[in-house]
Design a protein around this nucleic acid. Structure first.
Lengths: 258, 258
DNA sequence: CGTTTCGTTGAAGAGTGTCAAGGCCAGTGG
DNA sequence: CCACTGGCCTTGACACTCTTCAACGAAACG
């Protein structure tokens, strides 16, 4: 009995052992509650690099928790323009777009071989409507996504190319760090074109700005390999301050009214 | 009994009589269910033009359903850049940003005198965790917001000024229409600067593009008053097609008044 | 090892932003 | 009632960022 249970959960899911637990479930849960959540995870699924987890128009049945890998979400306009709306890393939840109308409204593509936990929304609904804490937690996940997108709108609506890229690199850095990887050295899983799409820039601009950062000693780039040398400098760029270069000692800088 | 109940609900809320019901509650609900929802609405609140419904940093307690009026949401970056993230009209739900961390992460300002229903989130949580259909419905509201923002990211990331403005006008038109107003003639409640912020453009660009549309016979503008003369032409612009320029203002299209 | 995809860099040009001047309108006080 | 004021809108000239086009080099892949 006990044995079979242990072996079962070990075989099947074992959220309780998952090193991503803190990312998926940032709540204090009792063991009993965790068990219920483990019941929710029906299967795992592997997606090879370049393949789709789902596509626009697919019926929505499941949410997905990323165990391992890297994906992008893209939306496409009627005339074929594509926009990358986000990059997803281990521990993040994907598929929220489908809840709105039971049909997915974006493509999610693996940028490297990826493994996800499949969470049937029906079961999620049972849990969120029977455990108040999980109901609230799920609301928070959705709301967090809304708030995150506010930040992207700010970026797309009011930042220059350099500011966008600096913000992008810092964001990646922070996310890698919170997953236990180096915050100063990582590999970009996406192409320049995909970065550009995400940031509202053309791939040439992305390349040029990265080169400029590299030339200014802020980062070191070699194809997909990036090393952050001066995070403070990047942060200054995001805040709109020009890095004090060459012969121009920064005089009293730009005040925006309080 | 019956009398007191009727008078009570008439005095207090009466979602069942609210002409916005279809916007707030796009579900088939039993009378009993609607009654429960009416219990959720605690009070009304009026906000004068220019005042805030809430501000960044305010503690999150309530969601708000707009009964009447017009508002904007804005986020601000650390260095003071402001971005309008949405405009809100009657029947829409505001405050979802606060769920993420119990603190609001944007400002919501009335652009005209506004009245909202106050929905305490705690009560919302009770209902969503006890009525499965409401739980799902609330998820849908949140998810719809995420999908809507995908569209804005597409706009900000890959459209030209003319395309953005055309999309913006068509969006407003459609929303006015679904509220029973004219889809071809309306008053902008926001300034050029606010439109610009929302669309990632400067106010001068907004003004210029509107003038160009007017010159091309697509719309008629007089300060805040806008009349759409050729919606098909605007749609063509959104789709990236150049309006076949020159002397041909193809206007084989829509009916004006409802 | 050839082929393809991806990345870098340059030169030229388009699209927006910036700065500045002036017009329109509503509200205010004489 | 009028003049005044301040906020909002329009328009022009010019500057500048980013895109476009093009060529080439570097890595990835079968």
């Amino acid at each position: 009995m006990t044995t079979s249970k242990i072996s079962l959960s070990a075989l099947r899911v074992a959220c309780s052992n998952c090193n991503l637990r803190e990312l998926c479930l940032p709540l204090r849960l009792s063991l009993k509650e965790i068990e219920r959540i483990e019941d929710m995870v029906s299967t795992r699924k592997r997606i090879k690099r370049g393949e789709a987890l789902y596509r626009t128009g697919d019926h929505f049945d499941n949410l997905f928790a990323i165990r391992l890998g890297f994906l992008k979400s893209t939306v496409m306009s009627s005339d074929g323009r594509e926009q990358v709306t986000s990059f997803h890393m281990a521990g993040e939840l994907v598929g929220l777009d489908g809840i709105a109308s039971d049909v997915h409204s974006c493509d999610v593509i693996a940028l490297e071989d990826t493994e996800v936990c499949v969470l049937p929304y029906e079961r999620m609904l049972e849990i969120t409507t029977s455990m108040r804490s999980m109901g609230q937690h799920f609301h928070k996940i959705l709301s967090r996504e809304i708030v995150r997108q506010h930040g992207i709108m700010l970026l797309l609506g009011s930042m220059h190319a350099e500011e966008r890229l600096a913000a992008f690199l810092l964001n990646l850095s922070q996310r890698f760090e919170s997953r236990g990887y180096s915050r100063s050295e990582f590999v970009l899983r996406m192409t320049r074109a995909e970065i550009g799409s995400y940031l509202g820039l053309k791939l040439e601009t992305v390349s040029r700005v990265l080169s400029r950062f590299s030339h200014d000693g802020l980062i070191q780039v070699n194809q997909k390999h990036v090393q952050i040398l001066n995070a403070t400098g990047l942060r200054a760029i995001v805040s709109g301050q020009q890095p004090l270069d060459g012969e121009e000692p920064f005089d009293d800088d730009i005040r925006l009214d309080p």
